[in-house]
Amino acid sequence: MADFGNEGLAEFYRRPGDASTVYVDVTQNREDPRRTSSLRHRSVREALADAGAPDADADAVIDRIEEPPGRPGKVSRLLVVRDGVVELDELLPGEPLGELIVSYGPVPSLLPLLTQRPRDLTYIIAEVGRDGGEIRQFRLSRTGAVAEEEIEGDTEYITKVQGGFLSNSRYQRDTEEIWKRNEGQVADAIDEMVRTSGAELLMLTGDVRARQLLVAQLAPASRDILAVVPTNTRPGGATTEELEADLDRHLAAILAQDEYDALERLESGRDEGLSEADFAAVVRDLQEGQVEVLLLASGALPEATLLALDREPWVASTEADALGAVVLGAVPAADALVRAAVLTDARVVVVSPAELPGGSGAAALLRWSTLSTH
């Protein structure tokens, strides 16, 4: 099974054949895990059968949701299975969108994924001490680090002593200089990782003095994305709860800013022909590859359907608009729009219905102005 970040979804959407999509709350019930598992299995099988999915898909889903999520707290799982083969398996931490969402058809329903993980941003966690530090790079689509580096600095005079002949100012200066050199090495490694990864967040934790020396030596690009956690998680057995809580808050803030910026552009772009809030016009703009960002109102299009196509223009309202492409089937409008957006390299931002003008279920930020074309 391929490892899909959001950027890999275009390849995924091009695959032929009907697929089962299951989004399920897999939060562990510590009080009665067996009963929870049994009820979940029965609900999943019944929902897939009602959707018309084959038994092989149900078997594959049941096998996969038996695997522990491997992380604490609330978590959901999104699975896409085709002909009994799991093609997508994503763990999505945070408040689940519902207990169970199931579909079967030519277009996988990936809206839950893009709702909880709008994009696959990269972040870095650095834990530092006076003798060096550990740097780990993460992506939202991965459960573990995608890269890591450990810096082992000089440990001579690593601790300033308070008494005896070693406490004179020369040794104190030597010790401080060693700390500074060690953190300089860590800062250089962080700067390089930030530069090569395009990270949008740098979380720093560890020894107080080491943090101070490190921050002073970071490049501006690293300081621009820096968030310092006022705790030391580096000693053995130290708790990481504060780090994890701060990380969640900062990641949520970055994604919330994306949504805010998109809504601001939607409003400001109206008079310039650079945004569109009419549903039919959004479909037309997607057909023309004109959409830069698709804004989709979650739950605002429950009954509407669109035609999914096997090639460009990827989506149509009627067969007459298919422009010779093969119609794969009538699918929920939200799924068809998301697929067309991904296949035309547009970003998807999920918002609440109240945030789009006129109660529209979809809106778009455009790559060029429509004033001279529509």
Rank of each mutant, 00 (worst) to 15 (best):
Leu251Phe: 11
Leu78Asn: 10
Val291Asp: 00
Val44Phe: 02
Glu87Arg: 06
Ala10Trp: 04
Glu200Trp: 12
Arg139Ala: 10
Arg82Ala: 09
Arg139Gly: 06
Met193Leu: 15
Met193Asp: 07
Val186Glu: 14
Pro68Val: 07
Ser197Phe: 07
Ala199Cys: 11
Gly358Trp: 08
Ala126Phe: 01
Val22Tyr: 13
Leu111Lys: 09
Arg223Cys: 03
Glu264Pro: 00
Arg14Phe: 12
Ala227Thr: 15
Phe4Gln: 08
Gly184Leu: 08
Trp179Glu: 02
Val283Ala: 06
Arg223Gln: 14
Ser317Thr: 11
Val348Pro: 02
Gly163Cys: 00
Ser275Val: 00
Asp271Met: 11
Leu213Met: 06
Thr122Ser: 10
Leu328Glu: 12
Gly5His: 07
Val315Arg: 01
Ala304Ser: 12
Asp207Trp: 10
Arg77His: 06
Glu303Ala: 14
Asn182Thr: 02
Ser298Pro: 00
Ser43Pro: 02
Ala277Pro: 00
Gly84His: 08
Ala253Phe: 03
Gly105Asn: 11
Glu288Ile: 05
Ser275Gly: 03
Ala363Thr: 04
Arg15Leu: 08
Ala210Tyr: 06
Gly105Phe: 14
Glu66Met: 09
Ala253Thr: 06
Gln162Pro: 00
Thr318Asn: 12
Gly98Tyr: 11
Val102Asn: 09
Ala53Pro: 09
Phe12Glu: 02
Arg367Glu: 01
Glu242Ala: 13
Tyr171Gly: 04
Ser317Pro: 00
Glu200Phe: 11
Val291Ser: 01
Ala51Lys: 15
